[in-house]
Design a protein around this nucleic acid. Sequence first.
DNA 1: CTAAAATACGCATAAATATGCGATAGGGCG
DNA 2: CGCCCTATCGCATATTTATGCGTATTTTAG
Lengths: 210, 210
Amino acid sequence: MIKLLIYEDNPQLREGLTMLLNGSDGFEVLASFKNCSNVLQELRIYKPDVILMDIDMPGSDGIEGLKQIRLVDNEVKILMLTVFDDNKNVFEAISNGANGYVLKKTPPAKLIEYIQEANSGGAPMTSSIATQVLKMFSSLHSEKGENYNLSEREKQVLHLLVNGYSYKMISAEMFIAIDTVRSHIKKIYEKLHVNSKSEAVAKAFKDRIV
Amino acid sequence: MIKLLIYEDNPQLREGLTMLLNGSDGFEVLASFKNCSNVLQELRIYKPDVILMDIDMPGSDGIEGLKQIRLVDNEVKILMLTVFDDNKNVFEAISNGANGYVLKKTPPAKLIEYIQEANSGGAPMTSSIATQVLKMFSSLHSEKGENYNLSEREKQVLHLLVNGYSYKMISAEMFIAIDTVRSHIKKIYEKLHVNSKSEAVAKAFKDRIV
DNA sequence: CTAAAATACGCATAAATATGCGATAGGGCG
DNA sequence: CGCCCTATCGCATATTTATGCGTATTTTAG
């Protein structure tokens, strides 16, 4: 019997998880909470095997809770739940001793598998997370990311975009018509597989093409 | 149909894998080889989707093969197979662009799952490997930049912005009116001293507030 | 040489964003 | 109790962005 604690601010999801797990053989949800303000106390009282910890909670967030727990307990397995597979949180979580990191959209059957895996000493990750982790690793050694075959001019435009330039400013800076700026940006979007300026900027940072 | 190449020096295992996969729906083993001396040629001829690459092969070993392939092809998925979950090889493999890293003792059903995962862009790892990876990561550390005194809600909004969400999508995701999203974003811009979405995104990356 | 990119530009239009000027409600604090 | 902050929402409007559909010249790769 795997004993669980759940920390999740969204009431629906909290209830859903609790019901799912209590209804599954070999699982017992001891309690669930909407934030981790009293996580240490609760840990002492319930002595769970595995903790499901939402990352994006108001007040004391999941990373904070994780840190607190790891100050006093290195045994309990902590599985982080999140809607995002972004770099920062993954890194923070695993640097601070999380045992796994899974997306909330993970189907129930998978989630159950992951919990079992965490409980038996594994490190379950949804594949997009694992990919992130591998990317981070690769980036430690290989200096440059994808190139996306951006042309020189396109790289210049993207560079200016990343530095907060509007189309008008780019047009002025590069001595080309604003419509030409549009053309370039459209091409850039195609190549990066995005469709907004901020997505392009984000991608530029993530893939280090800046 | 996932098309596979197999590199494995042990004849029994090589045959076993081939039979297993050819006997499974949706898989086709194009060919299998006992070492990767001619990997580039074979890659060109067969154009596989996924390559199963044993690490511990005599002559040209799996890491060597991996490196060669990645010089000319960043698309094909490469799943490393090994008996050991030792640090050195894991690190080498993932630094050189392997898509996954699984132990040979992985049960067939799991292996099939992993291959599918690799094929669809994931990064399958057996849990002991994943644990290794996390441990390596934990040894690193980084600290945090400015906070800009963003409120909880503002951080959530910024987070979504960084992930390419439009106002409308944020409104849906957070269950608030689009005008409220506007309010938050205006406040965020003030606090970050910017005045466009892409600038905010850029700043979020630069200052690691994401 | 020829085909394919890259570069440059124009026009039109729908959607998204930025901004200003409001309002209401709850929580924390001296 | 007022005062400030956060969070919520509404309306109006100007600007910016995204996109489609064109044309034309130059450079590059096969």
